[in-house]
Computed example of a mutant assay.
Amino acid sequence: MVAGFAALFLLLARVRLDRRKADGIASDLARANAALALEMRQRAKAEEEQGRFFDLSLDLLSIIDVEGRFRHLSPAWEKTLGWTVGEIMARHARELVHPDDWEATAREAQRLRLGGGALVDFENRYATKTGGWRWLSWHAAAVPEKGLIYAVARDVSERKRVDQMKTDFISVVSHELRTPLTSIRGSLGLLAGGVGGELP
């Protein structure tokens, strides 16, 4: 009978121990679940804030994979180029870059891939839906472990147009000033050489 009580006592002790373990495991799971729920709420909030940031930006924000495929674009792309965000995302970045700019763009993309997060600044032209071109000034950084490039582009077409107008104006003014000065210099040379006779 003592042996029976001892066996019963051991069985009850084991049940209590198993119950304590189960309670401990349940408590650990509840804490882990609460931590996971908090992390999910924080992540959802961060994604919502990122979405607002993308939606509000006047600049062209983008996340591009290292193969040149767009993964996320801000609405400013549509306003600037005329393509819908979906139309742009369905294309490879190379399809939108001006042919004369592709080689330089490919070099900069390679620098990003090899640079491991280094910032790259460059300019190129992107196609608009109406068949024109917009100059974009890029500031980008790669995150190699994710295989992504985070980039901000700004439409600098107006600045480029104004710069070209300044260059053209300076060229015209320089030419227009040079022509009369050449005539004056030639006339002074003739006078100094005595061609017109003695000066009074």
Results as ranks from 00 to 15, higher is better:
Ser157Leu: 04
Ala93Gln: 12
Val85Ser: 05
Trp83Ala: 01
Pro200Val: 00
Ile149Met: 10
Ser157Thr: 08
Glu145Phe: 03
Leu8Gln: 03
Gly117Asp: 07
Asp155Ile: 02
Phe169Arg: 13
Leu29Arg: 06
Val66Tyr: 01
Ile64Pro: 08
Val156Ser: 01
Ala34Cys: 08
Val85Leu: 03
Leu58Thr: 14
Val66Asn: 01
Glu95Gln: 11
Arg20Ile: 13
Asp168Asn: 00
Val120Ser: 02
Phe122His: 05
Trp133Glu: 03
Leu181Met: 14
Val97Ala: 10
Ile64Ala: 06
Arg41Ser: 13
Gly131Phe: 10
Ser174Met: 11
Leu61Gln: 03
Asp163Lys: 09
Ala93Trp: 07
Lys146Tyr: 10
Trp133Leu: 06
Gly147Pro: 02
Ile88Leu: 14
Asp18Ser: 00
Arg20Gly: 05
Glu48Phe: 07
Arg111Gly: 00
Ala118Arg: 12
Glu158Gly: 02
Leu8Tyr: 05
Asp55Asn: 13
Ala153Met: 06
Glu87Met: 07
Ala140Asp: 01
Pro200Phe: 00
Leu11Ala: 05
Ala76Cys: 04
Ser183Asp: 15
Asp28Asn: 11
Lys160Ile: 00
Pro180Ala: 06
Asp155Tyr: 01
Thr80Pro: 01
Ser171Trp: 02
Gly115Met: 05
Glu39Asp: 15
Glu176Ala: 11
Lys129His: 09
Met165Gln: 15
Asp100Leu: 13
Leu17Phe: 02
Leu177Met: 14
Leu36Gly: 10
Leu58Asn: 10
Ala104His: 06
Arg52Asp: 11
Arg20His: 12
Gln42Asp: 15
Leu190Tyr: 11
Leu188Lys: 10
Thr80His: 03
Val172Leu: 13
Ser137Gly: 08
Gly116Asp: 05
Leu73Ser: 09
Ala141Tyr: 12
Arg91Gly: 14
Gly4Leu: 07
Val143Gln: 08
Leu188Met: 12
Glu198Gly: 00
His72Trp: 03
Glu67Gly: 12
Ala44Met: 14
Arg41Pro: 09
Thr130Pro: 03
Ser137Thr: 02
Ala22Glu: 02
Thr182Ser: 09
Met89Lys: 12
Asp121Phe: 02
Thr130Glu: 11
Gly189Pro: 09
Ala7Gln: 10
Met40His: 15
Leu11Thr: 03
Leu112Met: 02
Leu11Met: 03
Asp23Ala: 12
Arg134His: 08
Glu39Arg: 15
Thr182Phe: 11
Thr179Ala: 15
Glu67Ala: 13
Ala109Lys: 06
His72Met: 10
Arg154Gly: 07
Ser62Trp: 06
Glu67Phe: 05
Ser57Leu: 01
Glu47Gln: 13
Pro144Asp: 02
Leu177Ser: 13
Phe53Asn: 05
Arg94Ser: 09
Arg94Glu: 13
Ala93Arg: 14
His92Arg: 06
Ser57Asp: 12
Glu158Val: 05
Trp135Pro: 03
Glu158Ser: 00
Arg14Asn: 03
Asp163Arg: 15
Phe122Asn: 04
Glu145Val: 04
